[in-house]
Simulated assay, not measured.
Amino acid sequence: MEEKNVSRITKIHLLGLQTPHSITFLIFFLFLLIYFVTICGNLLIIRLVSYSKSLHSPMYFFLFQLSLSDILLVTDILPNILHTVLMKGIIISFSDCITQFSFFSASEGLECLLLTVMCYDRYVAICKPLHYTLLMNFQLCWVMIITCWVLSLLVGLITTLPISQLDFCGPDIINHFFFDLDPILHLSCSDAANVLLEVAILNVIVVVIPFFIIIISYVYIIITIFNIPSITGRQKVFSTCSSHLTVVCIYYGSIVCVYLVPHRGQSGNITKFLSLLYTVVTPLMNPIIYSLRNKDLKDAAAKIVNHCLHSHISKFT
């Protein structure tokens, strides 16, 4: 019996956002600005949490990790966007495509897990305040963070290894701005049923279960808030979790629209726009939302600025 010769593609043409030529540079500088603000904003939070003793608590420890995750995510996605906007598409080797998808899968998995851990921290702080110090000790925090990182790395490996074993015979064009699962599998001429099953199981573990944990936690949080007699007390308690709730709504809302809503009749541009929400907008908004809504972070930033100003003035006096 003769074996079929399958010509495996080695290069992939990534089309990107396909913006009109007249606004190419405007779009490029917009995304460049977003990249700069995202990196600086998340580095600022990392700096504040690292050097401000008042922020050495579980909530800010998890926020520190979320900022690291956001930096990894945008660094994986935005350089490709910038390149495709300028060049109207780029050609990338298949191995680089798989590598980028691996980092993307790991970053997204880490984001989901960290948001869940942060939600658990808020649940304990609001629903079990007397036991907070005992339950949320730093030993447990480190165990949860290490577990999140290890699981996310496993997600990256488990999702990409089976894909790399498939035969890819074309077409060699992906109409997206990054390498996601569906666009990659559309290039394959192999049976991808096993890959889809493995990815579905991983999504249940890393995305669906954490999402339900977050929903259940917030149900208990809201019930506890409504049981507080004073309106001022309710507002004060709700403010401690409003930033996290805002981020969760943006992040999971866009993921649900992209991956769970049927794509039939949905244009590629709509899918790209929704994908921008959780790959670009969320990492940009996280430091802004947490900084604007958090008095401790603003106070810590003010102290560091004052310290820098006094040190600078003292050199000239």
Rank of each mutant, 00 (worst) to 15 (best):
L185F: 07
F211G: 06
I313R: 12
L297K: 01
H83G: 02
V206K: 04
V85G: 01
N203S: 14
Y132F: 15
K128F: 08
H310V: 12
L72F: 07
I304H: 09
C119R: 05
S164V: 02
F273L: 13
Y259S: 08
Y290S: 07
F94K: 15
S242K: 10
V305E: 00
C241H: 10
L73S: 04
L260G: 00
D70R: 13
L292A: 14
L297S: 04
I77D: 05
F101H: 06
L30R: 10
F179G: 02
S217G: 09
S105H: 01
P210A: 03
I209F: 04
I71Q: 00
D299M: 14
Y51N: 08
V117G: 04
I158R: 00
P229H: 11
Q165A: 12
S291K: 00
P283Q: 07
I222V: 13
L66Q: 05
S275R: 08
T19C: 14
S95G: 12
M87C: 07
H263Q: 14
S105K: 01
W142A: 07
C119L: 02
L277W: 03
Y132E: 07
L26F: 11
L297V: 02
G268H: 13
I173K: 12
R8A: 14
S243H: 04
I71V: 11
V237C: 02
T133K: 15
R264F: 15
C241M: 14
I209P: 04
I145L: 15
M144I: 02
P20G: 08
P287I: 08
C241I: 13
P183L: 03
V204F: 10
R264C: 13
N203C: 12
H13T: 13
K88E: 01
S67W: 00
L292P: 14
C127D: 10
L153A: 11
N194W: 05
M118Y: 03
Q100I: 00
C119S: 09
F61N: 03
F28L: 15
M87Q: 12
S230T: 15
I228M: 06
D180Q: 08
A106I: 05
